[in-house]
């Protein structure tokens, strides 16, 4: 029933897609986000499973590093056992908020022809994905926030270094990290237009997040050369930086520089994305085309 009404609806009240404007984007996102959130709530079982994987990895790292701190007499690498807890609790939140799966999905989309209807829509496909991604994150928070609180309580998180200013500074860092990781990974996902199998590439990318992004261990615990590489990689700025800001480990100047580096990566990704996108779609030929 609703299907028969849909064309009429879009003709009368739909946004004007002819030119990109804030009004058009607002109309698109307010409708699309509502649908996507409803969708994620309907498939909450699937969301719960992903949330569980988001929780397990920091939980394991947390236990391992608390054990290390314990056997070194209470602290290791400049972190006490309880500081490791607060670190990995924030890592869990930031990992969830920056999570994006499109590097894995593009291969499937291209292979099955699922990309064809998305490409035919009158708006750039990235908006479709931003909305899906954002709605997943919002719905997933229902699981991630309680998990973070439980872990913080059970494992005695120590937020002694965090001031109100750090919390305020954390939110811009988090939002920039979300944009950064989304843009970098969405751009790299375009590789699937040229390669038929991208799983090995994606696995490698995930490893970078573990060691250069700070999800396996705080970067200050890592060997010096890994830390040096992490500064010039996007991974540190997508996860470790917001976490360090939240824990109060970064000074005012360092925070401002960090925002700048995040913005630089975002700009670079947008430029590369625009260059690659036209080439990618030109390469794309669906079955029957």
């Amino acid at each position: 029933m609703s299907r028969s009404r849909a064309p009429e609806l879009s003709a009368s009240a739909g946004p004007d897609f002819d030119r990109l404007s804030l009004k058009m984007l607002w109309a698109y996102y307010s409708g699309k986000l509502k649908i996507d959130i409803a969708n994620n709530l309907a498939y909450r079982g699937a969301v719960a499973i992903w949330v569980l994987s988001t929780v397990v990895q920091p939980l394991v790292s947390l236990v391992v590093w608390r054990t290390v701190a314990g056997s070194e007499g209470g602290s290791a690498g400049g972190f006490t056992a309880n500081e490791y807890t607060s670190y990995f609790v924030i890592v869990m939140l930031v990992s969830h908020m920056t999570f994006i799966w499109h590097m894995w999905e593009f291969e499937w989309r291209i292979r099955t022809g699922f990309f064809s209807p998305i490409l035919l829509r009158p708006i750039h496909p990235i908006h479709h994905d931003v909305s899906e991604n954002l709605s997943y994150k919002i719905v997933g928070l229902i699981g991630v926030i309680p998990a973070a609180i439980i872990l913080a309580v059970v494992f005695d998180a120590d937020f002694g270094g965090t001031s109100v200013i750090d919390i305020l500074a954390f939110f811009p860092a988090l939002i920039l990290a979300m944009a950064l990781r989304f843009l970098v990974e969405w751009t790299l996902a375009l590789a699937a237009f040229w390669m038929t199998k991208v799983s090995a590439l994606n696995t490698l990318f995930d490893v970078f997040f573990l060691f250069l992004g700070g999800t396996f261990a705080p970067l200050s615990v890592m060997p010096g050369w890994i830390q040096a590489i992490s500064y010039v990689s996007p991974f540190r700025w997508a996860i470790a930086f917001p976490v360090e800001v939240a824990l109060g480990n970064r000074s005012g100047l360092e925070i401002l520089t960090g925002y700048g580096i995040q913005l630089a990566w975002i700009t670079l990704s947008v430029i590369v994305l625009r260059l690659m996108w036209t080439r990618a779609t030109r390469r794309y030929s669906a079955v029957g085309a």
């Binding site: 290390v68 056997s71 290791a76 690498g77 261990a217 615990v221 060997p223």
Partner: peptide, 8 residues
């Protein structure tokens, strides 16, 4: 990385 920080 872990055993860089501890022996056990």
């Amino acid at each position: 990385v872990i055993f860089n920080r501890t022996t056990d």
